[in-house]
């Protein structure tokens, strides 16, 4: 049946919603997603915090993750940490992908991580993409960011990372 992969993978999923609502990107059929438990799709919140409007990366990644069989919710622009964590809670996501190019990561990312802890959502995998200076990477990882993807990272690398590191719901994590 996998002959249909290409057809489903490229369906046109453009939707229009107001900025303050969340855009749910329909994902591919379940059976496309082979390395994850077949009964549960990986749910990802792609979020664009801060004042920056450069959203090419966030949008491309949102589509790539969807094409890889995940269920993707894109928040739109200018989300505060509170809005992001609230959306992650409401949508019961496994992964939060933050896109930050403006240099505001040191102000934003720790607040997102704190709020996740406060809401007992430590099991949510947090990944970060954008322009992040080397000297900040270690600190961010230390505070709980699972991976940082710099410009030029292949979409597939991000997909593989998420598949390999996402934590299933209801199963105690080893760490």
């Amino acid at each position: 049946m996998l002959v249909f992969v290409e057809e489903f993978g490229h369906q046109d999923c453009v939707s229009f919603v107001p900025e303050n609502a969340f855009l749910r990107v329909p994902s591919c059929p379940l059976w496309l997603n082979r390395s994850w438990m077949p009964e549960e799709k990986i749910r990802v919140l792609v979020a664009k915090p801060g004042l920056d409007g450069h959203d090419r990366g966030a949008k491309v990644i949102a589509r790539a993750l969807r094409d890889a069989g995940m269920e993707v919710i894109y928040t739109g622009l200018r989300q505060t940490p509170e809005m992001i964590v609230n959306a992650a809670l409401q949508e019961d996501v496994h992964v939060i992908g933050l896109s930050i190019l403006s240099g505001a990561h040191n102000a934003i990312v720790p607040r997102v991580l704190d709020l996740l802890k406060k809401n007992k959502m430590d099991d949510v995998l947090v990944v970060l993409g954008g322009i992040i200076p080397n000297q900040d990477i270690e600190n961010l990882k230390h505070s709980g960011v699972a991976a940082i993807f710099l410009p030029g990272t292949a979409m597939d690398e991000i997909v593989q990372f998420i598949r390999a590191n996402v934590k299933p719901r209801g199963v105690p994590t080893s760490s």
Binding site: C13, V14, S15, F16, V17, P18, E19, N20, L23, V25, K59, A62, R63, V72, Y74, G76, L77
Partner: peptide, 15 residues
Amino acid sequence: ALREVYGTYTEVSVT
């Protein structure tokens, strides 16, 4: 002051 007069814009999000 101008926001008070004109309001603000929210976009249609497209991915």
